[in-house]
Every structure is written in structure tokens, then in C-alpha cells.
Computed example of a mutant assay.
Amino acid sequence: MRYVSIDHVEPGQFLGKTIYSGNGTVLLGAGVQLTVYMISTLNRIGVTMLYIQDPMFEDIETDDMLSEATKQGVLQVMNNAFEAIRSGKDWNTQLIGSNVDNLLTDIMNNKELLVQLTDIRTKDNNQYIHAINVCLISSVIGINMGLNYQQLKELATGALLHDIGKTGMREEDQLVSDLKNHHTWKGFEKLKSKRELSLLIAHVALQHHERIDGFGLPRGLTGDEIHLYAKIVSAADTYERLIHPLEPKDKKLLPHEACEEMMAMSEKQLDHEVLSQFNRIVSVYPNGTAVRLSTKETGVVVRQHRGLPGRPVIRIVQGEASRFDVKELDLAQETTVFIEAVLS
């Protein structure tokens, strides 16, 4: 598979990864041959990047930590909960909890993998994919920091529901600085009212926009006044929003650019130790990404190295259809070769 801009997708190509709607149903299944109408529809519903099948890279897998069944289940339960809140109805925390258990089981079974955020986003599923990604990153950081299972479940649940306060709010009101109307307070109140949930889960929603230097919202907490769970979720949320901005006018960064941006936030906005763990677990150049090397050769990322996220294995294909020359460069071994640019 290759990860490409939808602007470069052509009719007749085959979809590499399933696209889900906001309620977890399959919008378009992997393996479907794309038509002009399908590509146009995907463009209209907000898809900007997607995976396509390619005979030269058919062995490339995205190495997802979560199974399709787990992702689909979390999407469904999140959609049901948020729709219930919008309608003023009660929502089922037990279903949230059982799906968090499934998610943590998948993560712990695949904890040697680097985190690659590869799900295809639409306007409809964006808020839920964001929540799943923040939960995924947060959980892996928590594992690396030695949290026990109960702590991991609290962290993962808080991460999954960190933006629940935005539910039912108009978009223009979601980032207001009026503290009592800020979505963090609203999220705290919604989660605190659920007695079956730990109060620490509610504090993730309350504190995930706090900053180490005290310039965050809603209370201007500093350093150790911010709970570890919230520090972890803050880093995951920041990364996710850098590569998938809330506002169309905001610049969308590539994963390696976002990591560099976050390093500049160390001990200002983000906790240094959390950032250190984050940089060990996130794939800077996800599988299927096209890149240009310092040798001026172009290729596609095919494999990752745990602990060396910036030094993947690159497959370079040269020549014409009848006489392809294929080679792979392992950047962990080829220490004088660097990735110069990411191509769409």
C-alpha cells in the first residue's frame, strides 16, 4: 500500500484501507476499485489522504495496533454516547469501559510496534478518530511510564472522553476563554456526574489544556499541579491537532514536523518526561509514505525500527514496467543518508 493525497488518486485504483463513517459502519471497504464518482464523493466528505493498493508495495502493512473490530466497536460506542448527550439522554459508561478493555488488550499485544495514525478521516468521523488516536498515543505512553492496568484504564478512558465537553456546543463556542463555559469545565461536569467513573477521568477532561508554565486553561495550573494523566493526554492531543488541525486555516504539519514543533514546547506547554516517551513510540514516517532522500532518490517507507522512529527502511523502485530495479535502504544502517522531504 501507499499513502497518497486524494488529488493523486486515479479511477481504477484499489482502496488499501477501509473507511468508516462516524457511527462505525463501513463507508467504503478495503479492496474496492475506485471510480470517478467515489473519488469525488470522498473529496466532498473531507478525505484528503488515503491508502491505495500498489503491486510494487503490496507487502507493505500499516502495522496498526488496533484491530478493525476494536476500532469499529469504539467508533460505535463513542457515537452512541455523544448522540445521547446531544439529545439530553443518559449514556452507557459500561459499554465505554468494555471497549476500552478491548483497546488496551490490542495495545498490549502490539506494544512493540510504533504508533502509526493511519485511519482515513472524514468530516463525519473526525472527532471520533481524533479521540481514538489521542487514547492510543496516551495508552502507549502510559505503558512505557510503568502505569498499572487500573491506571491505564483510567488514562485511556479519560483520553477517549477528553473532549466530551464540546458535545452539544456550537463550534464557535468550543474554544471560548470564559472559564466556566470552557469545554474543559463542561467535560469535567459531565464525567464527574457519572459516579461509576473515577474522578481522575473527569480531571483529564478538565486539565488537558493546562500548560506546564501556567499559561493554560481553565485554571492556569503549573507543573505538578497538573495530573500525570492530563500531561500525557495533552501531549497526545497536541500532536493530533498539529497533524489534523481543527481549523482549515491552520497549517497542517507532517508527523516529523509536528514532533519538532512539540520539542520546542518542552517545559513550557508540555512535560519533558512525557515528551521523551512520546518521541520513542510515534512513527515519524508511517509505512506507505513517499519520501525523497538526501541521495535525491525517491522511495516509500516499508518498515519501522522500534526506538529509531526517524530511521525507517525505504524501498526504492527505478526503471520502467518491464525492467524494474528494486532496492531497500535501511536508514538505521545507512547513517549518512537522510530523509530530505515527504512527498504526496
Rank of each mutant, 00 (worst) to 15 (best):
S5D: 10
I6R: 07
E10D: 02
G12I: 02
Q13E: 15
K17T: 02
I19F: 08
Y20F: 13
N23K: 03
T25Q: 08
V26P: 04
S40W: 08
S40A: 14
L42P: 05
L42F: 04
R44C: 03
G46Y: 06
V47I: 11
E61S: 12
T62K: 12
M65N: 08
M65L: 15
M78V: 12
N79L: 02
A81T: 14
R86S: 07
R86Q: 12
G88Y: 02
W91Y: 12
V100S: 11
D101I: 01
I107P: 02
L114W: 09
D119K: 07
K123Q: 13
Y128S: 11
Y128G: 13
A131Y: 04
L136D: 03
S139Q: 03
N144I: 03
Q151N: 10
L152Y: 02
K153P: 04
A156P: 08
A159M: 04
L161A: 07
H162I: 09
I164E: 03
D173T: 00
L179E: 01
N181H: 09
L197E: 10
I201C: 03
A202H: 07
A205F: 10
H209F: 11
D213M: 02
R219P: 00
T222M: 08
G223W: 02
E225Q: 13
E225D: 04
E225I: 02
I226K: 14
A230I: 02
P245S: 09
P248T: 03
K252N: 11
E257W: 03
A264L: 13
S266N: 09
L270F: 10
L275Y: 11
Q277G: 09
Q277C: 14
F278A: 04
R280L: 08
S283V: 03
T295I: 02
V300I: 09
V300W: 01
V300L: 01
P309K: 09
G319S: 03
K327Y: 00
D330A: 07
E334G: 01
S344M: 08
S344N: 14
